[in-house]
Design a protein around this nucleic acid. Structure first.
Lengths: 200, 200
DNA sequence: CGCGACGTTGATTTGCCTCAACGATTGTGG
DNA sequence: CCACAATCGTTGAGGCAAATCAACGTCGCG
């Protein structure tokens, strides 16, 4: 009954490690998803479009980013297998997105339409619970990142990023990491040089 | 049946403007709250304590902040009437808080114990829904703030703060606003001076 | 009144950005 | 399969925004 497509495995694990849900309910949930395949650098959501889906990264790596008035890119979030990625503001308010969502490498995404999900919230409490807890955790993580960004110099933030996301660091170019950390590629490059000198 | 204590009014409004909930359920929810009165500068949650309550500001103004290794204060959040304030990480994981929560001016807080709230989540779906939506909105707002902090100069951030939170600006000292904006009091002072010159 | 908390000012230092240029690697079309 | 272009990381010079440090005025409160 539960779909045995291997793309669904990370999602099943993601749900079951957080909430108790029986097979029938889980199946209803999974059946509401559609698969999207993306090539390297392909864009899944454009600024100005409205986000109608919650999106789960099954394979590969995505990022969301925005571009300020001076043309600078800021990476908001990376997402690898097991992460949810979205422009939540656009999704929640059904207004045009301020961010882009892009595949950094070839990726497989599972997405569920907002109408289906809202209906499921009323029908399967475990699904609503799942998203409540997910968003709580995301909030805490974001708060942590915000505080680090304000209080730590770039070197600390970079080392922290490496510790926490070694698997992300390997698949994304450095200028994206710089833009995630709120720095220029040149500055990050200089910091990396320093770190290597310190080692020897 | 619904408590008519005026302190509850902001909370009742807060819930009813977001979810449909009948009087009996709302009453159950409200009865789980206790009132806490705080004097100016009194601390409600100390760093190192574990947060066992969700807290709602009924009157006055609170803030949460943390102190880094160099002794600098960073204000994470202000909360006036109608806002929820907590160290969510401590609350969710039941680990020692990394932040303080403090009354900026004399304040009245309504708080519900975690055990009561978790029980209500299972019994009254509207309560779980309420918190899911609240935390979604908080996440979006925090993301917005994080992006502004990274991409805008202090002057922009200060003007934005003023526009958005004029009612907060009036009850908190300037050095706390500076610490919220990620700047020193001296720098904010200089920026304010500039703004005034521009006006004339 | 006198002390402490708060905001301001100015001099100096510093972390980070900007701009320009240059290898190295990747990928692509002829 | 090679040649050329584009992408990415690095380097260094110069500049600017913001932090630091120290000092001072003012207000409110015990």
């Amino acid at each position: 009954m539960i779909p045995d497509d291997p793309l669904f495995e990370p999602l099943i694990r993601n749900v079951r490690e957080l909430v108790a849900i029986d097979d029938a309910e889980l199946t209803r949930f999974l059946e509401a998803f559609r698969t999207v395949e993306l090539g390297k650098k392909e864009i899944l959501l454009f600024k100005g479009d409205t986000s109608h889906h919650m999106r789960f990264v099954s394979q590969g790596c995505l990022r969301s980013y925005f571009i300020d008035s001076a043309g600078h890119e800021f990476t908001i979030q990376f997402g690898i297998s097991g992460w949810w990625v979205n422009d939540l503001y656009s999704y929640l308010t059904q207004t045009p997105a301020k961010h882009f969502i892009q595949a950094v490498v070839p990726s497989s995404v599972l997405q569920i339409h907002r109408d289906r999900l809202e209906a499921l919230f009323g029908q399967v409490p475990a699904v609503e619970r799942f998203f409540r807890i997910k968003i709580q955790n995301a909030y805490v993580a974001l708060q942590d990142r915000t505080l680090h960004a304000m209080s730590q110099p770039l070197e600390e933030r970079y080392l922290e990023f490496r510790r926490k996301y070694r698997d992300i660091e390997q698949q994304v170019p450095q200028y994206m990491i710089a833009s995630y950390l709120g720095a220029t590629p040149e500055h990050l490059s200089a910091v990396r040089k320093n770190i290597n000198y310190d080692r020897s």
